[in-house]
């Protein structure tokens, strides 16, 4: 059955929103491509030409003599595995009987959901994770506590800056700077003696794990441009962490190195 131009538009709008959200949530390129291709073909499109890049997704849908080309811009990057899981499920469950508008509404409703963990829970999670890292680095109980406190403060600052829409690189720099200063303050107060483990652990929650892993996966699957772009972004985040630590170390003097 040939789809009308209007139907193609609805399918393109729905699939582009899903693809954009999947990318923003931390999906690798091939998952987005395969999910969108399967979905639009389930809707009844004969052919789809899809280009997924780190900052844009563009697609051309073809049905009989009719075609439609649309593009969407990718805005932020914020790993959210729950959203990714739900969107993946939506794309898998589409059948030819599904109405694209109903799927679009389901997707939009999904985007309005509250996250299953609130900001405070995430801050505590980051602090516990960093304290666990300090333990893995054979740190003492005091160093674990130091890593916990520094990571708690740094993650709190990161959350505040993220909510206010600051640049992610600036946010990361500020968070690593605060973690460094916090460890320095604990040393000045005489609570911490050895400092390297606490500091090394307290910034690890900033590591761009999703980008680094997706970089390799994208490159392995032939998406060189996307892989390199993501890798570069991961590298920039890593430099931001280093920059924050460097400035922090300068501010607190020679007490750490």
């Amino acid at each position: 059955m040939e789809l009308s131009r209007d139907e193609l538009k609805k399918i393109a709008d729905t699939s582009l929103l899903i693809g954009k959200t999947m990318l923003e949530s931390g999906a690798e390129i091939s998952i987005v491509e395969s999910s969108l291709c399967n979905m639009v073909q389930s809707f009844g499109c004969e052919k789809v030409n899809l280009s997924v890049l780190p900052k844009t997704i563009s697609m051309t849908l073809v049905s009989g003599n009719e075609f439609r080309t649309k593009m969407i811009h990718i805005e932020t990057f914020s790993p959210d595995m729950q959203k990714l899981s739900e969107l993946y499920r939506i794309t898998k469950n589409v059948t030819p009987e599904c109405d694209p508008i109903a799927v679009l509404q389901e997707t939009k409703k999904l985007l309005m959901y509250d996250q299953q963990f609130n900001a405070l829970e995430k801050i505590f999670a980051a602090a516990f994770a960093c304290a666990a890292f300090a333990a893995l680095f054979q740190g003492s109980a005091v160093e674990l506590m130091g890593a916990f406190v520094a990571a708690f403060l740094a993650m709190s600052l990161k959350k505040i800056l993220d909510v206010r829409g600051f640049n992610p690189l600036l946010t990361t720099t500020a968070a690593s700077l605060l973690a460094t200063i916090s460890v320095g303050a604990l040393i000045s107060l005489g609570i911490l003696e050895e400092n390297k483990i606490a500091l090394a652990s307290s910034v690890l929650f900033l590591v761009p794990g999703v980008q680094l892993i997706n970089t390799f996966e994208d490159i392995i699957k032939g998406h060189y441009l996307s892989g390199l772009a993501r890798g570069l972004h991961g590298l920039m985040i890593s430099f931001s962490i280093v920059f924050g630590i460097a400035v922090g170390l300068k501010l607190i003097g020679g007490s750490i190195v």
């Binding site: 931390g26 899981s85 995430k122 994770a129 666990a132």
Partner: peptide, 22 residues
């Protein structure tokens, strides 16, 4: 150490909003 590794992984899973059932 495996317990601490699990704790670190769990912390990151919460940060990445991994579904609770997983």
């Amino acid at each position: 150490d495996p317990f601490y590794a699990a704790l670190a992984a769990l912390g990151f899973a919460v940060i990445f909003n991994v579904p609770k059932k997983f």
